[in-house]
Design a protein around this nucleic acid. Sequence first.
DNA 1: TTTTGAGTTGTTCGA
DNA 2: GTCGAACAACTCAAA
Length: 468
Amino acid sequence: MTTTLYWMRKDFRLSDNAALARAMEADGTVIPVCIYDEVAESYGAAPKWRWGEAIRHFAATLEDKGSRLILRRGKALDTLRELIEETGATRVVWGRQYDRAAKERDAAVKSALKDDGVDAFSVRNHTLFDPWDIETKSGGPYRVYTPFKNRCLEAETFGDPVDVPGSLNPPPEWPASDTLDDWALSAPMNRGAAVVAQYANIGEEAARGRLGAFMKKITDYDDARDRPDTVGTSRLSENLAWGEISPLTIWTAVEASKASGTKGAKVYQSEILWREFAYHLTHYYPDIGDKNWREEWDAFPWRQDNNDAEAWRRGRTGIAFVDAAMRELYTTGYMHNRLRMLAASLLTKNLMTDWRVGERWFAECLTDWDPCSNAMGWQWAAGSGPDAAPFFRIFNPDTQIDKFDPQRDYTENWLAEKTANPGKDARNFFEAIPRSWDMSDDMKLPTPIVDLKEGRERALAAYKDMRE
DNA sequence: TTTTGAGTTGTTCGA
DNA sequence: GTCGAACAACTCAAA
């Protein structure tokens, strides 16, 4: 009788779960395990909280099916060895992750367990492709998105989603488990956890619900996706990040729908492939979250963390569209994609602040945080990254707000200071922020901390200098 | 090896 | 108000 440990990291779902399917195929018992290990310890406040909610929700799903999720805290390898000792497990299975911290941990775990004589292996479970499945005709990684995408689309098949298992083959006896409360995962968020919880969309069912709602309007996606004043996107990033839905489930739904082939569907699928590109890049350039991807940017006179950056984090730059976005981020754990670009452009160009300052803040605040997408996105916005915007492409928040929030619905929804009777979202920001920020909703909005034109010209001049 | 075509998301300025 | 050009060359991927 074989006992298998299914080490769950970011794949909290029953449907299309290839790692679970492999765990089950040994015809023995399966013990799902989640470990609060050295990698999870390093998560920012919001991701750590959201990870806990994914665990809470999925543990309940497992219990409904007669199984359990065993929780343990400690170094991954030590903890797995303890569990192997306690349960007599001979197999350990997990779904692959591709960021440097996870990859280094997993390589060490696999090698050590194999030395112990354990059948330890990983499964692709988070992406459509493994990063190394896609390569240029001459055999290397892609550095530009469009040819990468075209190569993905040429792939003959994406395969079929894996069925939901029937029984989960629980063991006759369970090893001991921590409780989620023992881990206190909401503690780093302080007051924010209760607020962000109001906006979270947790679990497999909720993810499917969003997919269903989105499929009804996917044909509008190519235009609607740019409008933060409406829900024009799928809003599935949060669920994708924690594996509550698989990209193959999404891809298959799009392909099977009557919208397949429309502009909206194609643009949406292209975004799914941007996600794949982030894993591809991170696999081949594991430093992408720490170092300028284009080395020449090491010479750029980035400002390190500074008062302007602090104002940016607090939604107090005096530039309404960006302040609204920064408050949406802090209050909900999410920010609309267009505003991510705009907020990043303001920080890295107009305020000439190191992209890593922004990357760290997003990693602290986003419930859909993904180390690979976050790193790629920030480097793209800053200009130091793959396929980056030309240096002269600096967003102007005044132009952007007229184009994408013409009625100011989005902006005013998030800025309590703008109206006499602010709505719940705007007030929630003040519920969520730390008292040490010393901000209240009766403050006046600050005057802009940077003149957009001057900031732009300063950045352009610095860029020109760097190139000479 | 060389050549060729192409490259997520923008802004400003002048006609 | 609208439209096209300029903004800067350079790198990438494939033929």
